[in-house]
Computed example of a mutant assay.
Amino acid sequence: MKILLFGGQGRLGTAIQNKLTQHQYVYPTSQEVNITDKEAVTNYIQKQPVNIIINLAAYNNVDAAEKDSTLADAINTQAPGYIAEATTEKNIPFVHFSTDYVFEGTKKEGYVESDQPNPINAYGKSKWLGEKKVLEKNLQAFIIRTSRLYGPPAKSPNAKRSFVDIVLDLASKESSFTINESEVSAPTLVDDIALHLQKYFLDSLPEPGIYHMSNQGGCTWFEWAKEIVDILNLPVQILPRDQNQQPRPAKRPLFSILHSTKITPMRPWQEALKNYLLHP
């Protein structure tokens, strides 16, 4: 199978290519095709003899989006719509990745695919509007929401550092540090997403619509950091920090666990994390 990946040099795109080596990949850089230019997107897709298109590109600077949402709107809302329209014209499957931040975060028990989004920050709003654009322009499209991605490094040197990388860096320099003790969501290993993507979307296509794909369970940032240092038995003390001690421009959902009810859920986040840290 030949797969076109937008955002293919990021962490998830790199994992897909590394884990699913049976496929051929096309992954243009932003210099090769500007996804915020509708004509450029349409022309590029029309020239590519691929079997499926997966959009992983996203503007994910949550706080910066709060100050200036222009770029978030262009990349997260408009661009997915352009890709969806082009895939409809070419009649090829389209998978678009989204986020748990489309939810407001009031459901402690977590969210299922049919729950109504209600984002509380500009980034989340741009992603939700992107979902709507995709489903409006391509009735056969697939939306996959996920959360808190981590895993092996991305090909792109500009890729955002994962929380695991940040904690390990702090642990190598400090004997003690604080981590936000709020915001419950699921850390998700990109390798697990790649394998699930193969099983449920590439081996054969499911029904079009919205899907949730994250490791099972949930934790706060503090609990995640504690689990990292405990697994590796690192000699460092992590202390909980109230989120109000370091206020940020954008609000975050307090509870945004994603439940998968349409495909088999992935393994628990603790199991995936342990496997990644001890058997990289």
Rank of each mutant, 00 (worst) to 15 (best):
H23L: 07
Q24K: 10
V26R: 12
Y27E: 05
T29F: 09
S30N: 11
S30V: 11
S30F: 13
Q31I: 11
V33G: 01
I35F: 02
I35C: 00
T36P: 01
K38F: 13
K38N: 12
A40N: 05
A40Y: 05
V41Q: 13
T42M: 14
T42K: 15
Q46Y: 14
Q48R: 09
P49G: 09
P49R: 12
N51S: 14
N51P: 08
I52M: 12
I54P: 09
A57H: 04
A58G: 01
Y59W: 10
N60I: 13
N60W: 08
N60M: 06
N61V: 08
N61I: 10
A65P: 14
K67N: 14
T70K: 07
L71P: 00
D73I: 11
D73T: 12
D73H: 15
I75R: 05
T77L: 07
T77M: 09
A79F: 00
G81P: 11
Y82Q: 07
I83S: 08
E85Q: 15
E85M: 13
A86V: 06
E89G: 01
K90F: 09
I92G: 06
F94G: 12
F94W: 03
V95T: 08
F97D: 11
S98H: 13
D100F: 06
V102T: 03
E104K: 04
T106H: 02
T106A: 03
T106Y: 06
K108Y: 02
K108H: 07
Y111Q: 06
Y111S: 07
V112K: 14
V112F: 15
E113P: 05
E113S: 11
S114W: 13
D115F: 11
D115E: 14
N118I: 03
P119A: 07
P119G: 00
I120G: 02
N121K: 03
A122M: 08
A122F: 06
A122C: 05
Y123K: 04
K125D: 08
S126I: 03
K127T: 04
K127C: 00
G130Y: 12
V134G: 12
L135R: 15
L135C: 14
E136V: 01
E136Q: 15
E136A: 13
K137S: 13
Q140R: 11
Q140V: 00
F142C: 04
